[in-house]
Amino acid sequence: MNMVLWGLAGVLAVAFLAAGAMKLSQPKEKLVASGMGWAGDMSAGTVKLIGAMEVLAAVGLTVPALSGIAPVLVPLAALGLVLVMVGGVVVHARRSETQMIIVDVALLAFAAVVVWGRFGPYSF
């Protein structure tokens, strides 16, 4: 199970590092044009904040466990992603973006499994 949790954390870290870096590096208008229509409903600062949270979560999912310094941050980072994904589900539901809701729920489930495993029976 430890390998499954590492795998899920790795998948989440890669996905959210890429998504967060894109939100931080691209202007809001370019994000909207590239298919992130929800970004048009939010301020540029909010989009950047979401991107920063995603990048920090990606770092928090991997670095503490790999370094052995404060590994309790791993499930806390995953919990933060659960909250971000709940927000994503709400935003996509309001916009009737069913396919994006499915992606958000899958990522939410992965993060929830990491929270359960690392806070519970498979902590570091």
Rank of each mutant, 00 (worst) to 15 (best):
M42Y: 14
R95W: 14
M3I: 12
L56Q: 05
A13H: 04
V105Y: 08
V89G: 06
K30N: 14
A44D: 15
S34K: 05
L83S: 11
A13W: 00
V89D: 09
M22I: 15
L24E: 00
A52P: 05
V90R: 13
D104G: 05
S96F: 14
L66V: 15
A77P: 14
A78D: 13
A109V: 15
G10S: 03
G87D: 08
G117M: 02
L81W: 03
G35K: 01
V91T: 13
L24R: 03
M53Y: 13
G80N: 06
E29C: 00
L31P: 07
L5D: 14
R118V: 02
M42I: 12
G40W: 12
G40M: 06
A44Y: 13
S67K: 03
E54R: 02
F124M: 09
L12H: 09
D104I: 02
G60Y: 00
V105H: 03
V14F: 12
A109N: 04
L73T: 02
A65E: 15
A65S: 14
E29K: 02
L83Q: 10
G68Y: 01
V113M: 11
A111L: 11
T46E: 09
V82A: 00
T98I: 13
A39W: 03
A112W: 10
Y122G: 03
S96Q: 13
Q26C: 12
A21D: 01
P64D: 09
A52L: 15
L108N: 09
S96V: 15
M53D: 13
A111M: 04
L61T: 07
A109F: 03
G60V: 00
L83R: 01
